[in-house]
Amino acid sequence: MVNVSKIKEGIVIDHIRAGHGYKIFQQLGLDRLDDVVVLMRNVDSEKMGRKDLIKIESNLDINLDVLGLIDPGATISYIKDGERVKKVSLTPPETVTGILTCRNPRCITNQEHITDIKFHLVDAATNQYACEYCDARTRL
C-alpha cells in the first residue's frame, strides 16, 4: 500500500473544490515532474463535503496565480521535515498573462493566435477576467 497521508518535504494543496484537482494538476504541469506527485479526488471533507487534494514531494516553485485563478479557495502548505512550515491562502490574481484565452470570436487574438494575452480581474466575486484587447469577460 502506498502511504500518501504524510510527506516529508514538499507542498500540499488542500481544500481544492472537488473536480478541480485535475485541472490544477494539468495547469501546474505536474505530469512533467520527476518527483512523487499524488492527486486525490473526491476525498471526504467535513467542511466541503468532498474535496480534491494534491501532494507534491518536491520544493517546486508553484505558480500561485494559476492556483488563485482556478480555485481561490484552495490552501497551500509547505512541508519541511514532516512539519508544516508555511501556509498560504489564495486570492484571485489582479492580472494573469498567458493562462487564459479570449473566447470572444470577434477578438483579434483569435485571428492572430496570440498566446500571451493579459487579463485583468474585473469581478472577484465571480472570478471574472477581462481581455486586454477586446474587454470581453471570461473565467477559467
Binding site: 483579434i108 484587447y133 474587454d135
Partner: peptide, 9 residues
C-alpha cells in the same frame, strides 16, 4: 479593422 482589439495589438 473588423476585429476587436486590433488597434491595441
Amino acid at each position: 479593422h473588423p476585429k476587436e482589439g486590433t488597434a491595441k495589438l
